[in-house]
Measured scan of single mutants.
Amino acid sequence: MDVFMKGLSKAKEGVVAAAEKTKQGVAEAAGKTKEGVLYVGSKTKEGVVHGVATVAEKTKEQVTNVGGAVVTGVTAVAQKTVEGAGSIAAATGFVKKDQLGKNEEGAPQEGILEDMPVDPDNEAYEMPSEEGYQDYEPEA
């Protein structure tokens, strides 16, 4: 019985440690998101679009440190934060509304985080759909 109880105690310690790591990862992701939003706020009209992409990228980098179902929630929060940063930029006159959601080359930025393969159960990952990809044929 002692062996059984000791095993359960060790398992509990492992769960607590994993929860603490997840909590730490979420806190880091939130900190990076805040950094990115402050970065966007300090940019001029020309830099705002690039700044919004930076927020998304920093958040995406930190999301990889967070495991399990938390990833889905962090990704949703990050996307809403990026959308909010863009709205703030438009409201303050840093950028025109028609410039939001495009990178410096004018290509749409939507789907940055949505296409990231995420499995809350950590069982399997699927690649994003290939609808947006084109076949590449090298020139002879």
Score class of each variant (00 low, 15 high):
Val66Arg: 04
Val95Gln: 12
Thr44Glu: 00
Lys97Ser: 07
Glu13Lys: 04
Glu61Cys: 10
Gly7Arg: 13
Asp135Tyr: 04
Glu139His: 11
Glu110Tyr: 13
Asp98Val: 06
Thr64Cys: 10
Ala11Thr: 06
Met1Pro: 00
Thr33Cys: 02
Pro108Met: 07
His50Gln: 11
Thr75Trp: 15
Glu126Leu: 03
Leu38Ser: 04
Gln134Tyr: 09
Thr44Asn: 01
Val3Ala: 04
Glu35Arg: 11
Gly14Tyr: 10
Gln134Gly: 07
Gln134Ala: 09
Glu137Ser: 09
Gly68Trp: 11
Lys12Gly: 03
Ala78Phe: 13
Leu38Arg: 15
Ile112Gln: 10
Gln24Asp: 11
Val77Tyr: 07
Gln62Pro: 03
Val49Phe: 12
Ser9Pro: 00
Thr81Ile: 08
Asp119Val: 02
Gln109Asn: 01
Gly14Phe: 13
Val3Ser: 07
Val63Trp: 09
Val55Phe: 13
Pro120Asp: 06
Thr81Asp: 02
His50Asp: 13
Val40His: 03
Glu110Ser: 05
Glu13Trp: 07
Lys12Arg: 15
Thr75Ala: 15
Gly73Glu: 03
Phe94Ile: 12
Val52Thr: 01
Lys58Glu: 02
Ala140Thr: 08
Glu35Trp: 14
Glu104His: 05
Lys60Leu: 12
Gly67Ile: 10
Ala27Ile: 13
Lys34Asn: 01
Gln109Tyr: 12
Glu137Val: 03
Glu104Tyr: 14
Lys58Ile: 13
Ala140His: 03
Glu114Gly: 09
Gly68Asn: 15
Asn103Tyr: 14
Gly84Pro: 03
Gly25Asn: 03
Asp119Ile: 13
Lys97Cys: 05
Pro117Ile: 07
Glu114Asp: 14
Gly68Phe: 10
Asp2Gln: 12
Ala124Glu: 14
Ala89Glu: 02
Phe94Asp: 03
Ser9Thr: 03
Asp98Ile: 06
Gly68Leu: 06
Lys34Met: 04
Leu8Glu: 00
Gly41His: 15
Asn65Ala: 04
Glu126Ser: 04
Val118Arg: 13
Phe4Glu: 00
Ala124Asp: 13
Lys21Trp: 06
Gly93Met: 02
Lys60Gly: 03
Val82Tyr: 08
Glu131Val: 13
Ala11Arg: 00
Gln99Cys: 11
Val74Asp: 00
Gln24Ala: 15
Glu61Asp: 14
Ala91Thr: 10
Tyr125Glu: 04
Met127Thr: 03
Gln134Trp: 05
Glu110Asp: 10
Glu137Arg: 14
Tyr133Asp: 13
Lys6Gly: 01
Lys34Gln: 03
Thr75Met: 13
Val66Tyr: 14
Gly7Asn: 14
Ala17Leu: 10
Lys34Arg: 07
Leu38His: 04
Val3Trp: 03
Lys21Ile: 08
Pro117Asn: 06
Ile88Thr: 03
Val48His: 00
Ala89Phe: 14
Ala76Asp: 03
Pro108Ser: 06
Ala89Cys: 10
Ala107Tyr: 05
Ala17Met: 12
Gly41Gln: 07
Tyr136Cys: 05
Ser129Thr: 11
Gly68Met: 15
Ala89Val: 15
Leu8Phe: 04
Tyr133Asn: 15
Val95Met: 09
Asp2Ala: 09
Thr64Ala: 08
Ser42His: 10
Gly84Cys: 11
Thr33Met: 15
Ala53Val: 08
Gly25Glu: 14
Asn103Val: 05
Lys96Pro: 04
Val74Cys: 07
Val82Glu: 02
Asp98Cys: 11
Tyr39Asn: 11
Ala91Val: 13
Ile88Tyr: 01
Asp115Lys: 11
Val71Pro: 01
Thr22His: 02
Glu130Gln: 13
Ser42Asp: 03
Val48Arg: 01
Gly47Ala: 13
Met5Val: 07
Gly41Pro: 01
Gly7Glu: 11
Gly41Phe: 11
Val70Trp: 09
Lys97Trp: 10
Ala140Ile: 04
Thr54His: 13
Lys12Phe: 11
Lys21Asp: 00
Glu126Tyr: 06
Thr72Trp: 09
Pro120His: 05
Thr59Ala: 14
Lys23Ile: 01
Ala18Glu: 00
Ala19Cys: 03
Met116Glu: 12
Glu126Gln: 02
Ala27Lys: 14
Val95Ile: 13
Asn103Gln: 04
Gly51Glu: 01
Glu20Met: 10
Ala140Phe: 11
Val40Tyr: 04
Glu130Leu: 12
Val82Ala: 10
Thr81Ser: 09
Glu35Val: 10
Ser9Asn: 11
Gly31Tyr: 14
Thr81Cys: 07
Thr54Asp: 01
Asp2His: 13
Thr33Ala: 09
Gly67Pro: 01
Pro117Lys: 09
Lys60Met: 12
Gln79Asn: 09
Leu113Asp: 11
Thr22Ile: 13
Ala89Thr: 06
Ala91Leu: 14
Val77Leu: 15
Tyr133Met: 08
Ala124Trp: 08
Lys10Leu: 09
Val3Lys: 02
Gly86Asp: 05
Gly106Asn: 04
Gln134Cys: 04
Asp119Thr: 12
Glu35His: 11
Met116Cys: 05
Val82Pro: 02
Ala140Cys: 10
Gly67Gln: 05
Met116Thr: 11
Lys45Arg: 12
Gln109Glu: 11
Gln99Pro: 02
Leu100Glu: 10
Glu46His: 13
Lys12Ser: 09
Ala29Cys: 14
Ile112Thr: 12
Ala107Val: 10
Ala78Leu: 15
Glu104Trp: 03
Lys45Ser: 04
Val71Asp: 01
Ile112Val: 12
Phe4Gln: 00
Gly93Ile: 06
Met5Ile: 01
Thr22Lys: 00
Val55Trp: 13
Ala124Met: 04
Val52Arg: 02
Val40Arg: 01
Glu46Gly: 03
Gly86Val: 12
Asn122Glu: 09
Lys80Val: 05
Lys60Ala: 04
Lys12Asn: 01
Leu113Gly: 13
Ala69Asn: 07
Val77Pro: 01
Gly73Thr: 10
Glu105Trp: 01
Ala124His: 06
Gly14Met: 10
Gly111Phe: 11
Ala29Glu: 00
Pro120Thr: 07
Lys10Ala: 07
Thr54Leu: 13
Glu123Leu: 14
Leu113Pro: 06
Val16Phe: 14
Lys10Ser: 04
Pro117Ala: 08
Thr81Phe: 11
Ala19Pro: 00
Lys58Thr: 06
Glu137Gln: 04
Gly41Lys: 02
Lys34Trp: 15
Asn122Gln: 10
Val52Ser: 02
Gly132Phe: 07
Lys32Phe: 13
Gly67Thr: 13
Gly93Asp: 05
Val26Trp: 14
Lys43Gln: 11
Glu83Trp: 12
Leu38Val: 10
Asp115Arg: 06
Ala53Pro: 01
Val95Thr: 15
Val74Leu: 12
Val49Lys: 14
Gly47Pro: 06
Leu38Pro: 00
Val52Trp: 10
Glu137Asn: 06
Tyr39Met: 04
Gly25Trp: 14
Glu46Val: 05
Val63Pro: 00
Lys6Tyr: 05
Tyr125Lys: 12
Asp115Asn: 10
Thr22Asp: 00
Thr72Glu: 12
Lys12Met: 15
Tyr39Glu: 03
Asn103Pro: 06
Val48Met: 08
Thr81Val: 08
Glu83Asp: 09
Val77Glu: 01
Gly106Leu: 10
Gly36Ile: 15
Gly111Met: 15
Lys80Glu: 02
Lys96Arg: 10
Met5Trp: 14
Lys60Arg: 12
Thr64Ile: 12
Val55His: 01
Lys32Thr: 04
Ala30Ile: 13
Met1Lys: 00
Ala29Trp: 11
Asn122Ser: 06
Glu126Cys: 07
Gly132Val: 07
Glu13Ala: 14
Asp2Glu: 01
Ser42Glu: 08
